[in-house]
Structures are given as C-alpha cells and as structure tokens.
C-alpha cells in the first residue's frame, strides 16, 4: 500500500460519504444522476465478486463492504425513499444505461487478461467505471446548476482515479512484475473524462463564482 493508493481510496471513500450524507441530511437528490449511481453499484458488484473468496486484508474487505453498502444505499434512497425520490429529476436524467453497459461488456469479452468469468467481470467493471460518470456530467450540463456538494462529489471522484494513476506509476517502478495495461488505459480514460469538468471546476473556484458548465 503506497501513499497514492491510500490517498486515492480515502478520496473515493470521502466522495461516496459526501453524497450519502448530502442525500441523508437534506433529504434531496437534486442534481444527482440515478443512472450514474446505479452504474457504480454495478461496477462495485462486478468488481468485488471475490469479496468472500479471496481475502486480501481487513482493510480491503472493509472498504469493499463500505463501497458496496454506500452505492446501494444511494440507489435505494433515490428510488425508494418517500421524500428523496420526489427531488429526483427523471425527465432530465435520461441517459440510457445500456449505451454504456453493452459496449463495456463486449469490450471486456474481447479485451481482457484472461478469459474467465471472474476476470471478464473484473475487466467489465474497470471499463464501466471509466464511463459511469457520463450520465452525471450530462445531467449537470442540462440542469446547468451545480450545487457545491455535487460539484465536490464529482471532483473527488475524478481526483481518486488520478491518484490511482500515480499509484500505478509508483508500483510500476517499485514492483517490476506489476504492469496491467487494461487498468492503465481504463484509468486514464476515466480521468480524461473528468478533465473538462476539472477545468471548469477550477475556473469557478479561482474566480470564486458559481460553477457553470457550457451547454
């Protein structure tokens, strides 16, 4: 475990907790894309299939349970909670899941490290995670208003993957056998998708004005 990975995991943990706390305290999910949250629940489910078969460390297992629990709770809140669901903007959050799920599945079947169920599922989760933020970014551009908690949430999500890239670079140089190009590519694509959001986030932060994404 190196500092980049720990910082990445903490940033990721913080992002889902910020979101869960926001929804739980103000009982609103305005500006949040349910599609993205459902895709993340799918990412964690297909990524952590080995949670009960391969024990890596207590930290690893606890974090997996937290990510699974928080992502499913967020989906539950937006779908089922009698107050929160009223603030869900379903006419704006229209991104089709299968536009992302199908291509990632097909890609994972053809491009993977090993053609086994677990490995294909794991690769699928990597590809899906790279694009899962798209419905959220589309929703932000449509609704144009970004409350700062949502902005912080997306920012932290992007930052976590950028820290993971530093972790992969660090491990590449310190652990010679550790090179997984699929992980690299998916991680870089994911971070690039956030790049334009980062640009506008920093612009608004620097000019101390409300975050506006171009239409």
């Amino acid at each position: 475990m190196n500092i980049f990975r720990l910082a990445g995991d903490m940033t990721h943990l913080f992002s889902v907790l910020v979101l869960l706390l926001k929804i739980h305290t103000i009982k609103s999910c305005a500006g949040i894309s349910l599609k993205t949250q459902e895709l993340y629940a799918l990412v964690f489910t297909t990524r952590y299939l080995d949670i009960f078969t391969d024990f890596i460390s207590l930290y690893n297992t606890v974090m997996k349970l937290i990510f699974l629990g928080s992502s499913f709770s967020i989906v539950w809140y937006i779908r089922r909670h009698k107050i929160v669901r009223r603030s869900y903007d379903k006419d704006q959050d229209t991104f089709r899941h299968y536009f992302l799920v199908i291509p990632c599945l097909v890609l994972a079947v053809f491009i993977n490290h090993k053609f086994t169920f677990k490995e294909v599922m794991w690769t699928f989760s990597l590809y899906l995670e790279a694009v899962a933020i798209l419905p959220q970014l589309v929703l932000l551009q449509r609704t144009r208003n970004i409350d700062n908690l949502t902005g912080q949430y997306v920012f932290l999500l992007g930052a976590y993957r950028a820290l993971y890239i530093l972790n992969w670079i660090y491990r590449h140089f310190t652990e010679p056998h550790y090179v997984h190009w699929i992980t690299w590519i998916a991680g870089v694509v994911q971070t690039l998708l956030y790049a334009d959001f980062f640009y506008y986030y920093f612009q608004s932060w620097k000019n101390n004005e409300k975050l506006q994404l171009p239409a």
């Binding site: 890596i56 460390s57 690893n60 090993k114 794991w122 972790n167 056998h177 992980t183």
Partner: peptide, 10 residues
C-alpha cells in the same frame, strides 16, 4: 500470484 497482485486494489 499475478492474479492476486492485480486484485489487491479496490
């Protein structure tokens, strides 16, 4: 061993 290596990350 290689497999475990990949999977030690979240």
């Amino acid at each position: 061993e290689e497999d475990l290596e990949t999977k030690d990350e979240l």
